[in-house]
Each structure stands twice: as C-alpha cells, then as structure tokens.
C-alpha cells in the first residue's frame, strides 16, 4: 500500500514526508554540511565539485546551482536544510521564502506586514477564483 497522503490537496505546499525524505536524503545532508565555515568556503569556491561528494542527482545539482528552491522542494529538499544555502549567501529566510511565491521579496514582506496570506481560498486545490 502506498503512503497515505491526506495533505496532497493543499495548494502550493510540499509536505516533507517519507517519500521526500528518501529522495532528498543526500541533498539535505549536503545542505547540512554548510553549517561549517570551512565547508561553506569550499562550496562557494567550486559548487559542482563540492557537491560531487554526495550522490545527488544531476537535477538536484542543477537546481542548487540555480538556487531554484521550488524545484529543490520537489526533489526532496527540506526547507530548513535548503535555507542553509541561501543563509550562507547572506540572504534572510524571508527573502529566500519569497522566491518560492509569485511575489517579489518586497511584495511578500509587505503581505506579511499586512497580516500574512489569508487561508481563504488557499486550503484546497482549485477552491480559489
């Protein structure tokens, strides 16, 4: 029996479940290595070369190079791990988060200041306008 996923009808949301953890294991462990300053330096000096130490897929490597967080989520990346890449570049978590939405960072921050994104119309795929 496949894993039960009652959250699959939530729009714009990737739940980090067992399937994601499985396909993203090496990607996330690579992200974790960026906790150390020495590794951050080695990564930024040669990103592709540094990532070759983990058996990541070419798609995952490409998505890291492009800092495509939505793609990385779909490829098993967990957000707490992924932001280690963007934080190492001095990007705030909120700015990194905004890149996954259809808004600019300014628009996203502005939405948050005004009380955030409403759950109305955002609970089920297809329910909004």
């Amino acid at each position: 029996m496949a894993l039960e996923k009652p959250y699959q009808d939530i729009p714009g949301t990737t739940v980090f479940d067992g399937d994601m953890a499985r396909i993203g294991f090496h990607l996330n462990q690579f992200c974790m290595s960026l906790q150390s300053e020495e590794n951050r330096k080695a990564f930024f000096a040669d990103e592709r070369g540094y990532m070759s130490k983990w058996p990541m897929s070419e798609e995952q490597i490409q998505a890291v190079l492009e800092r495509d967080l939505n793609r990385l989520l779909a490829l098993g990346g967990n957000i707490y791990y992924l932001v280690k890449i963007t934080m190492a570049e001095g990007m705030s978590v909120a700015a990194a988060v905004s890149t996954m939405t259809d808004m600019s960072t300014e628009e996203y921050m502005d939405m948050m200041k005004k009380g955030g994104r409403s759950p109305e119309g955002n609970r089920y795929i297809g329910e909004s306008e």
């Binding site: 729009p11 949301t13 996954m100 996203y108 939405m111 994104r117």
Partner: peptide, 17 residues
C-alpha cells in the same frame, strides 16, 4: 503558531484558527 516557509502558499497566517 501559523507559518509556512515553503512553496507558493508561503506566508499563510490564520489568526482565527
């Protein structure tokens, strides 16, 4: 309490809930 840090739906806040 409410927060979502990922995906197109990031930023959700549900004060009522």
């Amino acid at each position: 309490m409410s927060h979502q840090l990922l995906g197109a739906r990031a930023g959700i806040i549900n004060r009522e809930w």
